[in-house]
Design a protein around this nucleic acid. Structure first.
Length: 325
DNA sequence: GCGAATTAATTGGTTACGTCA
DNA sequence: TATGACGTAACCAATTAATTC
């Protein structure tokens, strides 16, 4: 950002001798004796060359009317001293650049918004301006460009923010919907558990001797296999829900029937499960339990049916295996 | 005539570079 | 040769003031 040797010259307000020499605008308020001294002592071009050059350009392009009397003294040596004095008391008027000058500068700015010294001099020459004026124009033009750029950036950021906000709100709505769905499903499971607990059949099946429940008799004495299997699977599902939701009041009761092989890790999600989507959490969590359980003696006797969960139930293992087949 | 917007120019500060002791 | 002081130029942000609308 800092100015290098290739940067353009004379834009600063530093009160060095060279900058004073470059200061071509003897405004009444700023025309100090130092600048005048610099002018007279240096013996170089008058510090008013800028305005003069501007007017000369205007004369060339016929933009701003007749030549100002200000510059007659510099063109006429006859009464120069008197006119110089008149010049010093002439109020300086800021002249706007002509449309042609601005257009030329704009095109140049589009090519490169930094101004090398050679380019500055060339532009000044082409436009009939002081190099300092060209430098100032580029400086102001960069400032305007930066302001517009900031506005653009702000708009872009605002749009980005709005889009993200909208996405976030949609996600919140989606989350709320999913939470509602989870509540409905939980409620359904609880009701199911309640119905099962009120129905004496199902708990009895699980608490019976292993060999008997396989083909348990119904209350009317008929042997029925299918209903029992279905009931057991339903019960497993209930257990599943209890595992998921250990806060459930039914959890303790069922845990006596479906005691995990090793409770120290049975409810511990596998590492890989931690990164899973929360979608369908219950089933995933539920399934994630059983690979752990496989590490027990269950692994030595691979099940033939999906109902073999390998719960470490001690003597009751027989009941499961019998039931499984 | 007046106020707002635009813009040329100034001011003051910072930084990079060259020179010199 | 390395280094610090100094001068110079370029740059920027903020501001002023003339001009235009």
């Amino acid at each position: 950002m800092a100015g290098g040797p290739l940067a353009f010259a004379g834009a600063g307000g530093r009160s060095t001798l060279s900058s004073l020499l470059q200061n071509q605008r003897p405004l009444p308020s700023s025309s100090s004796s130092s600048s005048a001294d610099a002018f007279f002592l240096s013996g170089s071009s008058p510090p008013f060359l800028g305005a003069r050059a501007m007017l000369s350009f205007e004369n060339i392009h016929g933009a701003n009317g007749p030549t100002s009397s200000i510059f007659r003294p510099f063109d006429n040596d006859e009464n120069g001293e008197e006119d110089i004095d008149e010049f010093f008391h002439q109020p300086e008027k800021k002249r706007r650049l002509t449309a042609n000058q601005v257009q030329f500068l704009e095109k140049s700015f589009e090519v490169e918004n930094k101004l090398e010294p050679e380019r500055k001099v060339q532009l000044a020459k082409d436009l009939g301006l002081q190099p300092r004026q060209v430098a100032i124009w580029f400086q102001n033009r960069r400032a305007r460009w930066k302001t517009k750029q900031l506005e653009k950036d702000y708009d872009a950021l605002q749009a980005n923010y709005d889009a993200l906000k909208s996405d976030f709100e949609n996600l919140l709505k989606e989350r709320d919907a999913l939470e509602s769905e989870v509540l409905v499903l939980k409620d359904r499971l609880l009701r199911k558990d309640k119905e099962e607990s009120e129905n004496p059949k199902l708990p009895v099946v699980l608490s019976q001797e292993p060999t008997e429940p396989v083909l348990a008799s119904s209350s009317d004495g008929e042997v029925s296999e299918v209903p029992i299997l279905v009931s057991k699977q339903d019960d497993i599902c209930s257990a599943k829900s209890d595992i998921i939701d250990s806060d459930s009041p039914h959890f303790t009761g069922h845990s006596s029937h479906l005691e995990p092989a090793d409770s120290s890790y049975a409810f511990e999600p596998e590492q890989s499960d931690l990164s899973q989507d929360e979608e369908d959490v219950p089933s995933k969590n539920f399934l994630s339990v059983f690979p752990k359980l496989e590490s027990s003696d269950y692994q030595e006797n691979p099940p033939a049916s999906s109902c073999h969960f390998g719960f470490h139930t001690g003597d009751q293992d027989h009941a499961f295996w019998s039931w499984s087949y």
